[in-house]
Design a protein around this nucleic acid. Structure first.
Length: 789
DNA sequence: GGCATTACCGTTTTT
DNA sequence: CGGTAATGCC
């Protein structure tokens, strides 16, 4: 069992003389200067301002984590609080782990006493388990992940006879998530928003979903924050316990907090008022999943008397890179304003280079990396940061042909893989037979001849008798209400589960897991599978069992998995890292490649469409994050042709390129081999044109860039049609709209395409043409991209 | 109930 | 174009 009992419900004992806390404090007091000495004045101020609300605006690379960890050390060293009286929250497990590690380095064992260092969700879980009964739950409630959540919603929709074609469960899940992010209970959902799902039944369905969760003794991720908030509001005595408990509170990445997290913090901060938040409004890139930059912008209004400390000395990047990033981000309105000050030499300029298409972009970057590598640069110190994951593939393919080591960060997570989720479902049912969703998942995996019909019967029976699914299954078998062959299979399964459950305390959980996977026929299922990935899945299952070893028992492991959805991939060989810009936040590399800076991709069209100016600003912050990942070299690329959804589209350089400061940027002329010369003009005109109009724009919708993007999207204009000195890169021109007329090309028409040259139309499908190009073969293209030859 | 074919869709992602 | 989800057929 997990030990949920920290000294809480009773009064906390004073530090034992000679105990860990006391010893750590003494050691630190002695070493005083040691941990404060290395700090610059601002950092020191952030560490030493202990009482009252504090906002630390920490620009990229200014020593944010160091401030946080040193601050904790300082609190403990001064004896202001004991380790378990400090609340320290992060967003990700990775960040929490890192913080614990670094505090550990400063303090030794005292870091282990920090029971309240963790993610919002893990701390929320802890609180909720302790007071589960007040929320209508048992303390052993299960935490559903997104997958379970969707399946549950599907059931709710089915029960209400709502056509999940018209109203997909995913969409409702998304809406509920959004409401929970904003701490809205079903009753509080704004009428207009409830209206938007299933003819006004949104809020009603949300309420039903909540009711089902309670029936299942389950919560979703949102509840881990919402329920504690409700608890605090409705039970003053509970809130007061925590007020007494948390003498100091620290929050990392405050710019990423959503409304629920903000309310949660505000409730807790009413106690000691010693709330220190660290963040950077310029690195807020999660608005699309509910983060409210507003929270950081209004901090001093929410927490009166708040002190604000700015960390602006950047120790990471060289001058040109920082200047470029600062200049770019300065285009954003509504920011608190910081200027990153380089602490080293100017270094290399940021480079901007163009390529003919995405393939060439990958080739050119691959070549550059090889060149760096042969000059002795480590691949570990090189990263490619993309806006969208589909961009990764081209790089992977190229690197495979080059034989260049690479690693992709992100992608399908270990615990989200089907085989892992199946195995987990088995373990969940064993640990708690009441876990209905888990039972449903594996009742017929591997195939046992228990189809929809049987499962439906089980569910109905369970509901009628209010028993667990395994129990309902047993009753159905006994009553002989199902067909003979299904009955035998079901009986076997139920008996197996009984047996496994009985073994929980009798054997090691790792052995039990192996046994279950073996006896259930699950491993066999994959062993017999001859698809390419089956072998990997078996490997993953072994890995799962291995990862269980670090836990004392099954329950401890299950708790870990529901909250910690990542496994640290071993950092193996020297390799180039490929990842999204989002995933790169918080990381740094000597050399950073930033491909795909094209309108529509970056800034992403959807961001602009859905969130307008706010969306554009978030994209710009993403660009800022990208640039500031680089220590010594930032290399921006754009391609004039990119294949999206299987069709070639022309693109024009990102407006962000125009927002980089000329003195800090080198525009690389395309080598003659690239783009057959037609591209050289691009680089040239880019350099010549972009400073013509440097006025900051007021409304996004009213600028050349915006119109340009709109035009580009609407007509899929032939960007590269603007050859040397063409209108394409000149601000204020509507780009090549003349070629965009969707002319009715008929079958057999001779056409010319920028990338593929001349060809004959062989098929017409709306505005999509299939063209037999003389040289390039058959391709599908949008009619906007070709002209009559 | 299981498998094959077709329809659909296509940022970013943590917990 | 390529992956997944959902239908339809055996």
């Amino acid at each position: 069992m997990i030990d949920y009992s920290d000294p809480f419900d009773h009064d906390v004992p004073a530090p034992r003389p000679g105990g860990i806390a006391a010893r750590a404090s003494a050691a630190l007091r002695k070493a005083d200067a040691d941990y404060l000495a290395g700090l610059n004045p601002e950092q020191r101020e952030a560490v030493e301002t202990l009482d009252g609300p504090l906002l630390v605006l920490a620009g990229a690379g200014t020593g944010k984590t160091r401030v946080l960890t040193t601050r904790i050390a300082h609190i403990l060293a001064l004896g202001k609080a004991r380790p378990f009286e400090i609340l320290a929250v992060t967003f990700t497990n990775k960040a929490a782990r890192e913080m614990r590690e670094r505090v550990g380095k400063l303090l030794g064992q005292a870091a282990e006493g920090m029971q309240w260092l963790g993610t919002f969700h893990s701390i929320g879980t802890r609180i909720l388990r302790r007071h589960a009964e007040l929320a209508g739950l048992h303390s052993n409630f299960t935490i559903l992940d997104t997958d379970d959540q969707i399946r549950l919603i599907k059931q709710v929709l089915a029960a209400e006879n709502i056509d999940d074609k018209r109203w997909p469960a995913r969409q409702l899940a998304f809406a509920i998530d959004g409401w929970k992010n904003r701490a809205l209970s079903p009753k509080e959902v704004p009428v207009g928003e409830a209206q938007s799902f299933a003819a006004g039944r949104g809020a009603e369905l949300y309420a039903m979903y909540q009711a089902r969760l309670r029936q299942l003794n389950a919560v979703d991720f949102g509840d881990l924050l919402l329920e504690p908030i409700r608890l605090f509001r409705e039970h003053k005595d509970v809130l007061e316990q925590y007020h007494r408990r948390f003498r100091y509170m620290l929050v990392d990445e405050y710019q990423d907090t959503n409304t629920a997290q903000y309310l949660w913090l505000r409730l807790l901060a009413q106690g000691s008022k010693n709330l220190a938040c660290v963040g950077d409004d310029d690195q807020s890139i999660y608005g699309w999943r509910g983060a409210e930059v507003e929270n950081i912008l209004k901090f001093d209004r929410d927490f009166p008397g708040a002190k604000i400390v700015r960390l602006e000395r950047n120790y990471r990047s060289t001058g040109h890179i920082l200047n470029a990033a600062s200049h770019l981000i300065a285009k954003n309105e509504g920011r608190l304003g910081k200027t990153l000050r380089p602490q080293t030499e100017l270094g290399e300029k940021v480079t901007v280079a163009g390529s003919w298409d995405s393939g060439e972009e990958a080739r050119a970057i691959g070549d550059e990396i090889e060149a760096l590598h042969s000059k002795g640069h480590k691949l570990d110190e090189i990263a490619i940061l993309v806006r969208a994951s589909f961009q990764m593939r081209e790089f992977e393919e190229r690197f495979i042909t080059l034989g260049l080591n690479y690693r992709v960060v992100g992608g399908p997570r270990f615990y989200e893989r089907a085989e892992i989720r199946d195995a987990m479902a088995y373990l969940r049912v064993i640990a708690s037979p009441a876990d209905a969703l888990a039972f449903e998942r594996i009742v017929n995996t591997p195939k046992r001849g228990l189809g929809d019909v049987t499962v439906k019967l089980i569910i109905e029976r369970a509901r009628a008798d209010s028993v667990t699914l395994p129990e309902a299954a047993r009753r159905l078998c006994d009553a002989g209400e199902i067909k003979a062959k299904a009955r035998q299979a079901l009986k076997d399964l139920v008996l197996s589960f009984d047996r496994w459950t009985g073994l929980i305390d009798k054997m090691r959980h790792t052995e039990l897991a192996e046994m279950v996977l073996e006896e259930s026929g699950y491993t066999d299922m994959w062993a017999k599978d001859r698809t390419a990935e089956a072998q990997g899945r078996l490997e993953n299952l072994k890995e799962l069992v291995r990862s269980m070893e670090q836990f004392e028992n099954l329950r401890g492991f299950l708790e870990h998995v529901s909250l910690v959805m990542d496994v640290d991939g071993a950092r193996g060989e020297d390799a180039v890292t490929i990842m999204t810009l989002h995933a790169a936040k918080g990381l740094e590399y000597d050399t950073v490649f930033l491909p795909g800076w094209e309108e529509g991709l970056f800034p992403h069209q959807r961001s602009l469409d859905e969130s307008g100016r706010a969306g554009l600003e978030e994209e710009r912050r993403l660009a800022y994050v990208g640039l500031t990942r680089a220590r010594r070299r930032a290399k921006v690329w754009f391609a004039s042709n990119r294949r999206i959804h299987g069709m070639w589209q022309s693109s024009i350089p990102s407006r962000f390129l125009d927002e980089l400061p000329e003195p800090d940027v080198d525009v690389i002329e395309a080598p003659a081999s690239y783009g057959g010369g037609s591209f050289g003009g691009m680089g040239g005109s880019y350099g010549a044109s972009r400073f013509d109009q440097q006025k900051p724009f007021n409304s996004t919708y009213d600028t050349p860039g915006w119109r340009r993007a709109q035009e580009n999207r609407a007509h899929a204009t032939a960007g590269p049609g603007a050859r040397s000195g063409g209108p394409m890169t000149i601000e204020g021109e509507l780009v090549a709209s003349s070629t965009a007329k969707s002319a009715g090309f008929g079958r057999g028409a001779r056409v010319f395409h920028q990338k593929f040259g001349n060809g004959t139309v062989v098929e017409v499908d709306g505005n999509k043409l299939t063209v037999a190009f003389d040289k390039a073969g058959h391709k599908r293209v949008l009619d906007g991209f070709v002209q009559a030859a």
